[in-house]
């Protein structure tokens, strides 16, 4: 069974690694973790005036599948509206990357990270409103 090309690609060449200015009001930051393995993931979105996610960045300290999951998540959220991004499910990530059962928690982590980033952005909006 060939290793999923997509995982390998996201593993070897993760996209959108890095950080956006955390205090920028147009940036939402989500930090999540998986207590069983101690992996931590940070995912950031930059939202344009039209409510569309213009850019996304991540940083993950963990296994290859967690890195691939978060790399894919940043690819997917870019260009989506906030509502569309909220619809991304971990099962989509599992399918896309062909993750094995023991690595499903990595995709859960990525889904959690998107939600956390969206929530952070929403909280900032509310505060500034």
């Amino acid at each position: 069974m060939a290793y999923s090309e997509k995982v390998l690609d996201h593993y070897n060449n993760p996209r959108n690694v890095g950080a956006l200015p955390k205090d920028d009001p147009s940036v939402g930051t989500g930090v999540v973790g998986a207590p069983e393995c101690g992996d931590v993931m940070k995912l950031q979105i930059k939202v344009g005036a039209n409510g569309v996610i213009e850019d996304a960045r991540f940083k993950t300290f963990g296994c290859g599948s967690a890195i691939a999951s978060s790399s894919l998540a940043t690819e997917w959220v870019k260009g989506k509206t906030l509502a569309e991004a909220a619809l991304i499910r971990n099962t989509d990530i599992v399918q896309e990357l062909n993750l094995p059962p023991i690595k499903i928690h990595c995709s859960v982590l990525a889904e959690d990270a998107i939600r956390a980033a969206l929530a952070d952005f929403a909280a900032k909006q509310e505060k500034n409103a």
Binding site: P35, E36, K42, K59
Partner: peptide
């Protein structure tokens, strides 16, 4: 023990920054 347990948010932030 595999069930999700959410640690305090500031711990995760701290760990992230330290990493």
């Amino acid at each position: 023990l595999d069930e999700r347990y959410r640690p305090p948010a500031n711990l995760l932030m701290q760990v992230m920054e330290a990493n």
